[in-house]
Nucleic acid binder design. Sequence first.
RNA 1: GGGCGGAUAGCUCAGUUGGGAGAGCACUGGUUUUACAAGCCAGGGGUCACAGGUUCAAGCCCUGUUCCGCCUACCA
Length: 886
Amino acid sequence: MKNIDTEIPSVYDPKIVEKKWYKFWLEKDYFKAKHNPDKANNFSIVIPPPNVTGSLHIGHALNNTLQDILIRWKKMEGYNTLWLPGTDHAGIATQNIVEREIAKEGKSRYDLGREQFVERVWAWKEKYGNNIINQLKRLGSSCDWSRLRFTLDEGLSKAVRKVFVQLYKEGLIYRENYVINWCPRCQTALADIEVESIEEDANLYYINYPIKDSKGEIITVATTRPETMLGDTAVAVHPDDKRYNKFIGKTAILPLMDREIPILADSYVDPEFGTGAVKITPAHDLNDFELGKRQKLQAINILNKNGTMNEQAGRFKNLSVSKCREKVLNELIKKGFLNKIEDYKHSIGHCYRCGTIIEPYLSKQWFVKMKEIAEPAIFAVEEGRTEFIPSRWDKVYYDWMRNIKDWCISRQLWWGHRIPVWYCQDCGEIMVELEDPTICKKCGSHNLLQDPDVLDTWFSSALWPFSTLGWPEETEDLKCFYPTSVLVTGFDIIFFWVARMIMMGLKFRGEVPFKKVYINPLIKAAGGKKMSKSSGNVIDPLTVIDEYGADTLRVTLASLTIQGNYICLSEERIRGFRNFTNKIWNVSRFSIMNLKGFDIDKIEKDKLKMTLVDKWIISKLNEAIKKSTEYLNEFKYGEAAKIIYEFSWNEFCDWYIEFSKPRLHQQKDTIERQTSQYILWFVLENTLRLLHPFMPFVTEEIWQKLPHKGESIMVSPWPKYKEEYENKDAEDKMDKIMSIIKTIRNIKSDMNIPYSKEIDLYLNINEKDKLKLIKENIYYIETMIKTKSIEVGTEIKKPEYSATGVLEGIEIFIPLKDIINISEEIARLEKKLNKINGELNLIYKKINNNDFLSRAPKDIVKKERDKANDLRDIKERLENNLKSFK
RNA sequence: GGGCGGAUAGCUCAGUUGGGAGAGCACUGGUUUUACAAGCCAGGGGUCACAGGUUCAAGCCCUGUUCCGCCUACCA
């Protein structure tokens, strides 16, 4: 009969457990940070705010798991922790969603008007905006929800306003007519980094432009965008290009448009590329625009905001860019202007939100001057005030920061922070103030108009680490938690977000926003492929949570987290860690069953009788505590998790539990049994605490079932390494005992002896210390190996028909009269001998080398010599045993 | 064009100042053993990309090469 507690199922079911404990933690207010003036004892993280439109994808799951591990661990270490959550209003994405929604009603945002449309978006946000927040809760995130922020909150909007006004007054924000990246679908300007260049196969078109007043002379230009010729206002060649000297100053006739355009010299032109002659379209190419400014050229804008041709394109009006290109090419061919077409590979910019091809577009936009605010941010990282982990990311940061360009911050959207600039319609005065103006300060007119544009969402995100803490008010939160301790984020937003936060933090708080930036890897599917809906290899974290539980998802992600750029996730991998979760569940189940009647308060520690294996497991636990804590300090999540995983499974479950069974299963409540119970409880309880940041739910569930002190494992202390727990002597001794057991198991397995078959065992040991050790602890071997009889001694002769195992100073004989197959045994021993000989030869090479002996450190030499002796001993014994068969 | 990262077992990856090639998964064989078959026990499997160099000693340091991935750049 199995003596099993039927109240605890043998398979862990996370569903009810997770709901129960999350609710409990919330009720206890454990996530809520306190105001603690002792800054050194505060630990704070601001969440990378997910888009309010978002739903939790696997990248969020990883990023937030890693943050939660830090927060829970630091909390257990005694810090006053703050994990500040929130969402981002995600201008383009959110506006797109609501526009699509009203499109179903057959309306556009213009039908609703600005005010009504924005109201609609708010209504949408109220309804769906908490989606991702609830999903974060399911992951177990211990965010301080009482401090939940949104980038369009009143307070954060105040911060945005203040920053804009101040930067404007300092001349760091300016408005200019400039060629920016225009998304014709979103109908807004984008910053340079919001454009994704994708290399595509395209064509280079060579077009002949006739020279005016010549006898059929032409100049040929090369272009990838032939339709832009409609806006050409010049042709440029290099001043030193002898081929074209004669044309400089002459006039070309623009085909199809019959416009006269000058041919001019500019050193920007690369004579090596194409024909060495460039068509110049100042309104639709940044370089052409710059050249146009130098050369005082007219800029002709040929595009409407929606990407179709405007009236400047003449008869091509209203055509889309691609249709227009087609028609232009047809006409060029028909009229004999198209010289040739070449295949050409080049990068084409796409909108990072919707994928539409970006058009360079001349328009009036607001910009932030970056050079000046970037400099202190570069120093901050150089001086280590902010540290990137892994450190190589600082190079990426430096590279971008040192070549930084001005940031286009105006967006032609309705959802976002409206640009706080008013224009007097009467005198043209521009007003930028903290309070909305009602009267022109110059002419007294009330005829004011606010700039229609909104700010880039990232403009408000850049203020996140201090705007969320209450700035511009000097709040207690700011005093306690700024600068924050760590930022955990992905490398894809180092430019978008991290760099800008450092700049703004320094500019407006005079201090870096975070001391460390931990860059987490990005997740890929098995085989290193990108997860995408089209490949069908997406792993949805919520599905994983439903199926396997949040703990399994978390510990999987944490375990895979290495210092590299990518991690590969597969369902197979998740199942492996589900098994681990279940292992922890079952060892706890075993422990709970065996701790009946155990009371921590009644234990008199001085009276406990610690055995060798008790000392060993305590020492091993101690080591696991030390190493896992060290790894966490270095943000090596995978290594930390691995240490705890291996300790709990390979040492605690596989060895300690098995060794302790006989003592636990005693009927009487002896001191031996009590000791065993105490150690079992002690090790498990500590292990649970080590696991808690990784697997908060299952550890809480078990911890509450175990004898414990305190309300929750969440607020229990992180285990501490203690020197007095370290016991190298016990570790060495257990090593020897365990290798004897392993060798016997090996022989049994090789000889096909079933586990349950009882054997006679002979141990011939020629060293006094070892003999004493084994004699005193023969109990451990008996626990793990089913034996009929055991003999241990110095002069034990090998019984006939025995299988043999050889260890340093130890021979193991198992008589197998009925079973043994002599030739199999010979083959087995020969195989082992070969292996030993191989190792031995390598060592001989070393210790017979005079250079090695004279130059290598003495301890290394000694180690090699000792090893040679051990191996020689084993070799001799193996050989003797082999001889006995012949 | 510039830069960064990578190449170690079938797969995914560890491998900290240079000193006995590791893990998980997969695979093979055994096993229902009083927590767990999502388990237990055992096993096979590697020219550490290639070529040089430094060193008594190189997966690790240096140089070069090849291949892969990513970022970045205004060459139309």
